[in-house]
């Protein structure tokens, strides 16, 4: 008898296999935890993969210190308190001491120092040899060729020509000391799959994904939420309360909201399907030029 698994169950099984393969093959795995919806799905899959044990690795949050307050709250209440996981937070202290911020230093420099450099610092300090990330192949054109097990040299660099062919579900997990692998269990998932899975599994996500009245100012035609007192307002500018939600979450001054009244997952999914805007449109980072994500990846950006 031949049975076919629904696509979500098949994707789930594939991701669980990847999680287990890494834990069985590497000495010091870690899961990068960005608190976003993809991280929530990743966490759910990790819990399933090792049940009844807890995920046998820590979560690493590279904190730029400019995330939304609701994200910090979600991290502490859900991942740390409710699930009892070992969440390690790393801040690039040099960047913090130098006062690097998204207003004065430009999105590119700010992102490089707080995220890319911060991530490398944390990975080196933790001597992690494998790091799980939530990247998907459908997010951006250059990611369509990314491996599930993405090889990084001792400087955490990604070199397109050094990537190993991946056959069947047999992953080459061999690395030399100091080298590492980034692992993407959600490689074959799409944005719709992620939302659908959250809906099906009732996975908790940060409330910012749902529409609510939030204090907004407009920047380059994009609504930006005034999340705390550090937001630089133009002279005379007053935030207006508007019904918005976020499609991706990052640093609040760089995360564009969209006007919406969607307060349930089906509504969000409907809006997403109808709007047909690329997910990363809200992220300022990709507007730097059409090859920019690829260059960031070479530098070590996730």
């Amino acid at each position: 008898m031949l049975r076919t698994l629904s696509h979500l169950r098949e994707l789930e099984a594939e991701s669980i296999f990847i999680f287990r393969e890494v834990v069985a093959s590497f000495e010091r795995p870690v899961m990068l935890y960005s608190i976003g919806k993809d991280s929530s799905v990743l966490l759910q899959l990790a819990r399933k993969a090792f049940f009844p044990a807890k995920p046998p690795f820590p979560l690493l949050h590279v904190d730029t210190t400019w995330k939304f307050q609701e994200m910090y709250k979600f991290r502490d209440e859900y991942a740390v308190k409710e699930l009892g996981l070992d969440v390690r937070v790393h801040v690039n202290e040099e960047a913090r001491a130098a006062g690097i911020n998204p207003f004065d230093h430009g999105s590119r420099k700010y992102t490089d120092l707080t995220k890319t450099v911060g991530l490398k610092q944390a990975l080196t300090a933790g001597k992690y040899d494998a790091a799980f990330g939530g990247a998907r192949r459908d997010e951006e054109k250059s990611r369509a060729k990314e491996r599930v097990f993405s090889f990084r040299d001792t400087q955490h660099r990604w070199e397109p020509r050094a990537q190993r062919p991946e056959l069947w579900n047999i992953y080459n997990t061999q690395v030399n000391p100091g080298e590492s692998i980034r692992v993407f269990p959600l490689s074959n998932w799409t944005e719709l799959d992620v939302w659908q899975y959250i809906h099906l599994e009732k996975i908790p996500i940060v409330p910012l994904y749902f529409a609510a009245q939030r204090p907004i100012v407009m920047r380059h035609g994009v609504p930006i939420m005034v999340d705390d007192a550090r937001m630089r307002l133009e002279p005379g500018e007053v935030p207006r309360m508007e019904s918005v939600r976020f499609r991706t979450l990052g640093c609040y001054p760089l995360s564009g909201a969209i006007h919406s009244t969607a307060t349930t997952l089906p509504e969000i999914i409907r809006e997403m399907m109808i709007a047909r805007m690329s997910e990363r449109q809200g992220r300022v980072i990709d507007h730097d030029g059409s090859g920019s994500m690829e260059e960031k990846k070479k530098e070590g950006y996730f």
Binding site: R137, D138, A144, P165, T190
Partner: peptide
């Protein structure tokens, strides 16, 4: 290189 894309 091999590229993977999905559609529904």
């Amino acid at each position: 290189d091999v590229a993977y894309r999905s559609f529904t």
